[in-house]
């Protein structure tokens, strides 16, 4: 059957094109435009070509070294968050009740941290972890452990990671719980008949059946933690020193603190490409291993 062709139909797409151009394309191109120029204020711009990118990717330069340091810190932060949140999330999901009033109660409780805005989470923890008036900070110091996130880099890291775990483990729990609930009872009954231990049930049934939701959970948590800004900014401001200055915080320092728009634009493009690449590699490998298994 020949489909009727009417090129006027393209006009129907125009509003979307305009909207996307306005909201995404133009801002991105502005950043690209900045990244190849240098500014000295007064809206004067000078052509710099790929200068910023070369400097950024060369660790021996000032900018490059700073960028690499922040990149490592961010990767370490994401890695720690994933390492803690994923196993913890799976563990909690396994222990949640399957029926009865406990289901609704625990789901609501778990969802609560997810509903709190980032800057409020930051403020809560900033106060919570203070050594003078904070419940956590005062208690830890009361136990005789020296803990001051404003002075010790280690304490700052512990605080920032604990805050992310507190805020986001629930997401992993909820996704895993949904995955677990989707497993038909017959699987558990068959495992009983086969004499499987609870570890064998986990390895043979629960973990494989959670594979898809875990892919999503890891992807979401990686992107989110890799781009984290508000919470550490509120709690530590990137300090002490540069100890918790993650890429996003550094970016804002360069862009708005020093008003180096060119450097910041180049940095944000590289930053964005890193996130895209890591997510793409992760997604491609996990979905390929899944589709191979299906064929």
């Amino acid at each position: 059957m020949a489909k009727p062709v009417d090129n006027r139909a393209w006009f129907l797409v125009l509003p979307v094109v305009a909207l996307v151009a306005f909201s995404a394309l133009i801002p991105v191109m502005t950043v690209v435009n900045y990244s190849v120029q240098d500014s000295f204020g007064n809206n004067e711009f000078f052509w710099n070509g790929t200068g910023w990118f070369k400097e950024l990717l060369d660790p021996s330069t000032d900018l490059g070294g700073r960028f690499l340091d922040a990149l490592w810190r961010t990767l370490l932060f994401s890695g720690l968050c994933l390492l803690i949140e994923v196993p913890l999330g799976i563990g909690v999901a396994l222990t949640l009740p399957r029926r009865g009033w406990g289901v609704a109660a625990s789901l609501v409780l778990l969802a609560l941290p997810l509903l709190i805005p980032w800057n409020v989470v930051g403020t809560i923890w900033q106060v919570f972890a203070r050594r003078d008036i904070g419940l956590l900070g005062a208690a830890v110091n009361g136990l005789g452990i020296e803990y001051n996130y404003a002075q010790s880099p280690l304490a700052a890291w512990v605080t920032v990671v604990a805050m992310d775990v507190w805020h986001w483990t629930s997401l992993v729990v909820l996704l895993c719980y949904a995955g677990l609930r989707a497993i038909p009872d017959a699987y558990y009954q068959a495992a009983k008949v086969d004499g499987a231990s609870s570890w064998a049930v986990f390895r043979a049934i629960q973990l494989p059946k959670m594979q898809r939701v875990l892919t999503i959970a890891i992807l979401l948590r990686f992107m989110d933690s890799f781009m984290i800004y508000t919470e550490p900014f509120v709690v530590t401001g990137g300090g002490p020193g540069n100890a918790t200055t993650f890429l996003s915080i550094d970016l804002v320092k360069i862009a708005l603190g020093q008003f180096d728009l060119g450097k910041a634009a180049a940095m944000s493009i590289v930053y964005n490409l890193i996130v895209l690449t890591v997510c793409w590699i992760f997604f491609a490998t996990t979905t390929r291993s899944q589709s191979e298994a299906v064929q």
Binding site: P184, A186, Q189, V193, G195, A204
Partner: peptide
Amino acid sequence: TERRNVAQVFQFPVVY
């Protein structure tokens, strides 16, 4: 179940 030495085949196929 695990101590009864019975085997069961379910309505929907269960494989690991």
